[in-house]
Design a protein around this nucleic acid. Sequence first.
DNA 1: CTTGTGCACGTACGATCGTTCGTATCCTAG
DNA 2: CTAGGATACGAACGATCGTACGTGCACAAG
Lengths: 202, 202
Amino acid sequence: MDDGSTKKRILDRAYQLAGLYGLEALTIGGLAEKMAMSKAGIYGHFGSKEALQLETVRHARSVFLAEVIEPAQAEPAGIARLWAMCTTLVSYRAEIGLHGGDFWITVFHEYASRSGPVRDAVEATMTWWLRHLKTVVSAGIELEQITPCDPAQLAFEVQALLSAGAHQHRLCGDPKATARGKSAVWHRLQALRGPRFPALAE
Amino acid sequence: MDDGSTKKRILDRAYQLAGLYGLEALTIGGLAEKMAMSKAGIYGHFGSKEALQLETVRHARSVFLAEVIEPAQAEPAGIARLWAMCTTLVSYRAEIGLHGGDFWITVFHEYASRSGPVRDAVEATMTWWLRHLKTVVSAGIELEQITPCDPAQLAFEVQALLSAGAHQHRLCGDPKATARGKSAVWHRLQALRGPRFPALAE
DNA sequence: CTTGTGCACGTACGATCGTTCGTATCCTAG
DNA sequence: CTAGGATACGAACGATCGTACGTGCACAAG
């Protein structure tokens, strides 16, 4: 019944490691070592490596929902909610200095040219995330917070700028990169300012 | 003496495969199979896998220089040259349907959290590319083609939008994504239009 | 013709991968 | 107290990885 104990700890580690090195480089032996467990002990929880990868993706989805999407639902619909997601996405850090969104940045790119069930799950998440962003932008337009524009286009740009910021921060070790991403989104939103544009923190 | 023969063909294949699956997933056996050669035949040209990876990075750099940077030098300095790089980056396709910039998008993300000589070479390329973009933007400002702004910030945005477009095109199979990236850069440049803004094709 | 040098080959090695199997341990239901 | 299910274990497998070694063949220099 206590499903959340060992298996959840394994998935947390897998999530963390995959965010650093990808889901393909994730190794059952390496995972076992980090968990101070045997390979078979890890393996028994999943039955195959692909199942481990798929469950890690599902775990990452629930983390993303709980830490980025749901908190933003407390904000008013539209641009305030969009901006809440942006700030959360940029500022949240797990215990090892890993951004909350870094798992997805890594995995999105890892499976861009692959095939199979894991890739399909990853692609579905990307598609869902873009659609969610688009929905939030559309609400902002209908509420006259911003000038009418193509919501899918703005969603694309938000995703592009934020993930590029996090990525360059990691690759080049430049903390300003994250701020550049956030700043670019900020100015983009200001440029679209409509009659009912909400007050945004920071 | 004919250094360009077999070794160059190997590096071309390695470049192609690494653009699809990354430099870590690149395997000497797999490369040998695609080349209809033996593992030892491939291996002998490099002496280690890391050397193969490093030479592939150098090869990719020269491809990028020859196909993106140099052609743009024919354009007038500043925004026209910047836009030439953008269009080349977006439209160029290798024979297998791989964008010219896809190698770097893949590899940039693959090594974001890794360490070692390969990562250093990859990071150096990213840093160089951003600096080059910044230089071109700065020229555009000094020539009064665009309004004064932070050239590093605009360089960041160009890189972010173009690579996100190519990436989403690959992951989600949506050809519109590429156009979104290009379009976003286009409108960003138009918004910065200065007294000597040049005519841009397309 | 002989010699030497470089390229590609087949083979084999240790390590590590995912996976399977049998077993010991613990907790819970009866 | 006993029986059964879940959990984690050690050992072992075939496959594949990077790497090393010795061989054969081509071609240019003497």
